[in-house]
Amino acid sequence: MNPRVAGWALLCAALVAVGLFFASAQLVARWSAHRFSNPHDDLEWLRREFRLSQTDLERIRLLHEGYLPQCREWCAKIAAKKAELEAELAATSHFSPRAAELVRELASLRAECQIRMLQHFAEVSRAMPADQGRRYLAEMLRLTLGAHEQTERAMAPAVLHPHAHP
């Protein structure tokens, strides 16, 4: 065989093989990520990450299922208050005292919702073995309160350099 033809044939074969490799890796990764994550169970991550026994998991499932309706209720209250605020803002051209009151009520509802959420995390952590419970609580505080901290940190330079303001 002519070496040049052989070279081209090998190059084509290598390209096809590499293409097949990446295509199958991509497809299988997508399929298996969905499958391994157990899409029908919200608590799959807890079971895996904190190596929970079946008994611990059932105890936590009861807490989780008890918490979800409360959580939905708070979400509905917050959504209703938000809609009320939006209607108030749309109705008047200026920022009315009623709108300010609604903003305060909305913040209060959100704070109450966050308090319930943190209480739930504490309950769940107590239902786990001690070490894993501490790790769970730390992780959940990082993941939930951390979101606010990022925003606050982004605002921090303005506070750190008060002389920059007129």
Binding site: S24, A25, A29, R30
Partner: peptide
């Protein structure tokens, strides 16, 4: 590719 995909998945 499939084995790599499984690990990534």
């Amino acid at each position: 590719g499939a084995v790599t995909g499984l690990i990534q998945g």
